[in-house]
Amino acid sequence: MEILWILVKIIIVFAVVMLHVMYATYFERKVIGHMQVRMGPMRVGPHGILQPIADGLKLFFKEDIIPTVADKKVFYAAPLICLISALSAIAVLPFFEGFAIANINIGILYIFAMSSLASYGVVLAGWSSNSKYSFLGGLRSSAQVISYEIAMGLSLVGVMMMAGSLNLTDIVHAQMNSPFKVYLIPQIIGFFVFVVAMFAETNRTPFDLPEAESELVAGYCTEYSGMRFALFFMAEYIGMIVMSCLAVTCFLGGWSGPFEVPGIPFFWFLLKVYFFIFLYYWVRATLPRYRYDQLMALGWKVLIPLALFNIVLTGTIKSIFG
């Protein structure tokens, strides 16, 4: 029975996440469209509401082109690595009180492991395509991951120290019992570093260097087409959702809110996640793209020192005030 219940939970969460991925693309196009004085998708269904389904069908029926010089096995595996690791990270996220597929005691580490694994998919995709632009995209991605994973990990150390746990549910509980109810205020430096690293981790503007459209055509996914391309696309959006969930869980108090909404225990959680996803779109519509060396400089010279400073500060305050 236990296994059956877990399976049901997995299916429900998977379906909900996939629905969110579909409509995240739609809302991205709508939000950015309206920011850019245009309408966004309007043709498929009322206000283009069926656009994601049309896109999915189109990608599914596209011809699957594989370059003759590509390393076939790795070429097949790369998008799957991306997607599977992105989806696996969802398992530990607590959506509301007592609901997480796997409530393990090293939740944060697990998510880091999975998101690092996803970057292998990008690197391997760039390498196996045997295309020059893809290769450059893959190189950029590996450099980016090395510098931003560290900053991201360090930025959450403050949260771990305050909560005294790596379990995401425990972190949320610890926040509920803390004086500010959220870690956003005491961990503001950590939050800043985390948000910047979050954009870099998911390869979104202004850190979308691995797929920089105007420089590397499409970077690591230049040679991918049809469903394989769609897998990368899904992985990117799932990555965005996971990172938003992590930010909400670690800094904004997870599912807790100013008052209980009866019948919808995950109301506040979703609201906060939507805010972060909106933030992704907002930044994409506003900012230009960093250059490769500037990105590295920002990671190593600004974010990592800031995160280290935050750890020292948190530790000092904690040891003085208990």
């Binding site: 950015i32 920011m35 850019q36 004085v37 245009r38 105007s214 519509a285 506003t286 900012l287 230009p288």
Partner: peptide
């Protein structure tokens, strides 16, 4: 120029 550097929105503002 803005689109090449990555600022998408300027592109559509200018076209307006």
């Amino acid at each position: 120029h803005a689109l090449d550097i990555g600022a998408m929105t300027v592109f559509l503002y200018c076209f307006r």
